[in-house]
Simulated assay, not measured.
Amino acid sequence: MQPPHVDPNAIRSKRNWRAQLTAARATLTDDAREAANRSLTVHVAALAVASDPAATIAAYAPAGNEPGSWQLLDTLAAGGAQVLLPVVASGDATALSWAIYRTRDDVAVGRYGICEPTGPRLPPDAIADASLILIPALATDHHGIRLGRGAGYYDRSLPMASGLLVTLHYDHEFVPGPLPMDAHDIPVHATITPELGLQRLPLGNSAA
């Protein structure tokens, strides 16, 4: 399938990047998204941490056409790791709280239509226990700069993380860049796409 068109030369701001990337996602067919998500599940499951019963993994429940799937979350939970999903509090943007994901039967729709576990809430610093943090994003560039949706929840949460920061993307969303970067933006350590699998960042730095 021909990837959706995103013209990096025509983009100068985060707003323009978000508009083009959101429009490109909307052109993906259901079959294309399902195939991409099956591949992403395979790549994430191949990480050693995914089968470590002593591990904690912070992940997310995909909303709309975001890459990621319930199959991925179920695979991680079946591997024995403790899987945390974010909980968005009411009011102004603040650091995310967390809750343990067990099955799809134990989730409910929360703020912004995002599914959240119904169990006890864990404080924002629970992310510090995660050795792997899977992060939603509209794009990541070859330097590790992540472009989110702009609400700021992850900007407030990631400073508390100590594990491997990994974004999940459709292939066309891993871009050479540079993406616009603000002082509070924290580069990620890697990205995973359906065709490329795990890409350590910055690209070309094997020690990253």
Results as ranks from 00 to 15, higher is better:
residue 135 I to F: 12
residue 40 L to N: 02
residue 18 R to L: 07
residue 179 L to C: 06
residue 154 Y to W: 07
residue 74 D to E: 12
residue 110 G to A: 02
residue 12 R to T: 00
residue 198 L to G: 04
residue 200 R to N: 05
residue 23 A to M: 04
residue 65 N to H: 13
residue 194 P to Y: 09
residue 127 I to E: 06
residue 161 A to D: 09
residue 101 Y to Q: 03
residue 31 D to R: 00
residue 2 Q to K: 13
residue 153 Y to K: 03
residue 182 D to F: 00
residue 71 Q to D: 14
residue 47 L to T: 05
residue 140 T to D: 09
residue 4 P to I: 03
residue 132 L to R: 02
residue 78 A to D: 14
residue 174 F to S: 05
residue 6 V to H: 10
residue 159 P to E: 06
residue 131 S to K: 06
residue 148 G to P: 09
residue 15 R to M: 04
residue 32 A to S: 06
residue 137 A to Y: 05
residue 13 S to C: 04
residue 165 L to V: 00
residue 53 P to S: 04
residue 168 L to P: 02
residue 16 N to L: 15
residue 115 C to D: 08
residue 208 A to H: 12
residue 57 I to F: 02
residue 52 D to K: 12
residue 133 I to E: 01
residue 26 A to V: 00
residue 137 A to T: 14
residue 27 T to W: 00
residue 151 A to V: 09
residue 96 L to I: 12
residue 145 I to Q: 14
residue 111 R to T: 14
residue 186 I to W: 14
residue 69 S to T: 03
residue 46 A to N: 08
residue 119 G to C: 05
residue 87 V to H: 14
residue 36 A to T: 03
residue 94 T to G: 15
residue 188 V to N: 10
residue 195 E to C: 11
residue 121 R to M: 11
residue 39 S to P: 01
residue 158 L to G: 10
residue 107 V to N: 00
residue 90 S to N: 12
residue 19 A to H: 03
residue 199 Q to R: 12
residue 85 L to W: 12
residue 161 A to I: 03
residue 126 A to I: 11
residue 135 I to C: 09
residue 5 H to F: 06
residue 10 A to I: 15
residue 85 L to V: 06
residue 35 A to M: 02
residue 104 R to C: 05
residue 3 P to M: 08
residue 34 E to V: 03
residue 94 T to M: 04
residue 144 G to N: 06
residue 168 L to Q: 04
residue 177 G to P: 05
residue 74 D to A: 10
residue 25 R to M: 06
residue 111 R to E: 09
residue 187 P to Y: 05
residue 106 D to G: 11
residue 175 V to S: 04
residue 104 R to V: 14
residue 78 A to S: 14
residue 117 P to G: 11
residue 195 E to L: 11
residue 173 E to K: 07
residue 65 N to M: 14
residue 156 R to I: 01
residue 199 Q to A: 07
residue 65 N to K: 15
residue 41 T to G: 01
residue 206 S to W: 07
residue 92 D to S: 06
residue 156 R to M: 04
residue 19 A to E: 09
residue 6 V to A: 09
residue 35 A to N: 03
residue 198 L to T: 11
residue 128 A to L: 13
residue 200 R to G: 02
residue 196 L to A: 15
residue 8 P to C: 08
residue 159 P to G: 06
residue 130 A to E: 08
residue 151 A to L: 12
residue 92 D to Y: 00
residue 100 I to Y: 06
residue 140 T to V: 15
residue 92 D to V: 15
residue 81 A to Y: 03
residue 152 G to L: 02
residue 191 T to W: 04
residue 178 P to L: 12
residue 3 P to E: 11
residue 200 R to Y: 07
residue 55 A to T: 07
residue 140 T to E: 10
residue 140 T to H: 12
residue 137 A to G: 15
residue 114 I to W: 09
residue 39 S to H: 02
residue 57 I to E: 00
residue 16 N to E: 15
residue 134 L to C: 13
residue 91 G to F: 07
residue 37 N to Y: 01
residue 201 L to K: 01
residue 51 S to K: 13
residue 88 V to F: 09
residue 75 T to W: 08
residue 100 I to W: 03
residue 151 A to E: 13
residue 179 L to F: 09
